[in-house]
């Protein structure tokens, strides 16, 4: 009977994941409350109850509170990169022309290939590259941010 009860409890217990790079398990649902334990990205927390903006959780045998905004229902994923995989949104598209494309073509509304090519090229890829170069490491930035 005990085994059955434990099985049911484990089925019912909801889990959430800590998504912030680092943070704290707090004694009360207040930002300046006492720290019970340090948390890091990916830590699995057992959900006990909810309060506006806060979650009461259990972690490593300790009970405490975390800000809901720092958690996610699914484990935090790895950074997505487009470098290793070519993204082609049209690859699995239907093989026949859709109502949209065929009627647009019939009415002469379909822009020519050259025209679309031109519009796509008008995107400023050089500036985008420059914008990406501004990026700072999240860990480094967070250390600086929390210093003040």
């Amino acid at each position: 009977m005990k085994i059955l009860f434990l099985f049911l409890y484990s089925c019912l217990a909801q889990e959430v994941y800590f998504k912030s790079l680092k943070g704290k398990l707090l004694a009360e649902p207040k930002p300046k409350s006492n720290v019970i334990s340090e948390l890091k990205r990916g830590d699995k927390l057992s959900l006990v109850s909810k309060k506006a903006g806060w979650l009461s959780v259990e972690y490593d045998g300790k009970s405490g509170w975390v800000a809901k905004i720092l958690t996610s229902k699914k484990p935090p994923g790895k950074k997505v990169s487009l470098l290793n995989k070519k993204v082609d949104l049209s690859k699995k598209a239907r093989k026949r022309a859709s109502n949209f494309s065929s009627s647009a073509a019939a009415r002469g509304l379909m822009p020519s290939k050259e025209e679309i090519e031109y519009k796509m090229q008008s995107a400023n890829k050089k500036a985008l590259k420059k914008m990406k170069e501004f990026q700072i490491s999240e860990a480094k930035a967070l250390k600086w941010f929390l210093k003040e």
Partner: peptide, 12 residues
Amino acid sequence: LIGGNTQSFRTL
């Protein structure tokens, strides 16, 4: 929404 040809995809 679209058909499989490249032009349709670009349009979309």
